[in-house]
Simulated scan of single mutants.
Amino acid sequence: MSEEFLSQEEIDALLGGDSNSSSEEQKLEVAPFDFSLVEHIKKGGVPGLELLLERWIKIYSEEIRRLVPQINMVTKESVYITRFNNFMSKIPLPASYSIVSMKPLKDNFLLVLDSRLVFVVISVMFGGPAQPFKIEGREFTKLETRIIDDIVKISLSTFQHTWKDVYPVEFELKSIELNPALARIVSGNDRVIVVECTMDVDGYEAPFFFCFPQGMFLPIKELIFSEAVFAEKDPVWEKHLTKKLLKTELKLTLELTRKNFFLRELLSWKEGDEILLDISKDEFVKLYVEDKPKFWAKLGKIKDKYAALVVDMINGENNGGKREKSGTEPESGREKSGRISQGMGGSS
């Protein structure tokens, strides 16, 4: 009868009785997970920049065809936000990294040309098929570097032209790097806005990229992160606004001369006293608009009323912002009168 019963070891084996030891082994295999290592890709979120790029592609497509007539189409594939390290790790080598400043914005951005784009462009330019060369881990030659330089210059000149109607910027090509370690515009964990584009060269599609630091556009975030600024203008509202603007009232002040007096002299004044201004009709005086010097003028008279003839504009604060010498004349005035007035203010 004893042979019909199972031993305790056999029962534990069938029922998983040694569960404590196996669970401990499973627990040892579990390791903490670092969520910071996961690539976070956020698509969209920069509608203003996307609309700007759509405008740029139309201009760029026409200009780049003058260099490479075999280019059929340039398209914007996607715009997304990711970490800088994640973006750089996905670019196959060799690649061209153009570091560009965008004044008055502080940070630099990257224009990255994939090696497949460079090789296929060179191939079709010299009568070859629309296929990239075999890379074999080599760097770009002098000829390939020259083609890269031409593509980059056309890209930046057309991109700057597109910005002209939105925000005045000036692009400056800092350098073209072939080593990704020398193209670090931000730290590895910083977020960047990546614009992925493709260029169709005789049926072969090759990628290139823009990489902008996310904080680069903070001074103009209302332009980049909103599409309202690119909305079409309402001609009726524009006409109404112009009409209102032209009816705005402004205070004009004509500064005739400027003099210094002691307090005891002012206290001795009485009704009927005369103050000599020592100014002639040929001298230039300043015309103020809302307490800001804007024009040079000459004194005159129309019928029985005094008048001022505007002869020039005052450019900048250095020329007209300081009121110590109100009679400082423009160059044309020095030739005509040769005199500089001292002055005291009067209102028109």
Rank of each mutant, 00 (worst) to 15 (best):
152 V>E: 01
254 L>M: 08
312 D>W: 05
276 L>N: 13
295 F>S: 03
243 K>V: 00
322 K>M: 03
288 Y>M: 15
138 R>F: 07
157 S>M: 10
27 K>C: 11
296 W>Q: 03
116 R>C: 07
289 V>D: 00
129 P>H: 06
279 I>N: 04
235 P>A: 02
4 E>T: 01
82 T>F: 03
330 P>L: 00
53 L>Y: 15
154 I>H: 05
118 V>E: 09
237 W>S: 13
313 M>A: 09
246 L>G: 10
199 M>F: 04
190 D>R: 14
85 N>F: 07
74 V>W: 04
226 S>E: 09
176 I>N: 14
170 E>D: 13
84 F>A: 00
231 A>H: 13
305 K>F: 01
314 I>M: 05
62 E>G: 07
265 E>C: 00
41 I>L: 05
94 P>L: 03
339 R>E: 06
182 L>W: 12
192 V>T: 07
84 F>L: 02
34 D>R: 14
132 P>C: 01
195 V>C: 10
37 L>K: 15
197 C>H: 06
299 L>T: 12
91 I>M: 03
146 R>V: 10
277 L>I: 08
199 M>N: 03
302 I>R: 14
317 E>T: 04
315 N>W: 09
310 V>C: 05
244 K>V: 06
172 E>S: 14
203 G>K: 13
138 R>A: 11
217 F>T: 04
107 D>G: 06
206 A>V: 07
79 V>C: 04
321 G>K: 14
347 S>C: 03
334 R>P: 00
95 A>Q: 06
219 P>S: 03
148 I>W: 13
87 F>H: 08
89 S>W: 01
170 E>S: 08
250 L>V: 13
57 I>R: 13
43 K>W: 04
228 A>E: 10
278 D>M: 06
135 I>L: 13
24 E>C: 03
131 Q>D: 07
269 W>C: 04
260 N>A: 06
83 R>F: 00
210 F>H: 12
38 V>M: 09
223 L>N: 14
89 S>T: 10
183 A>S: 14
112 V>D: 02
148 I>Q: 15
46 V>L: 15
301 K>F: 06
231 A>P: 08
292 K>Q: 10
44 G>V: 06
181 A>D: 11
90 K>D: 01
125 M>C: 10
266 L>V: 14
51 L>G: 13
330 P>M: 02
13 A>N: 09
242 T>C: 06
279 I>L: 15
142 K>P: 07
83 R>C: 03
214 Q>T: 12
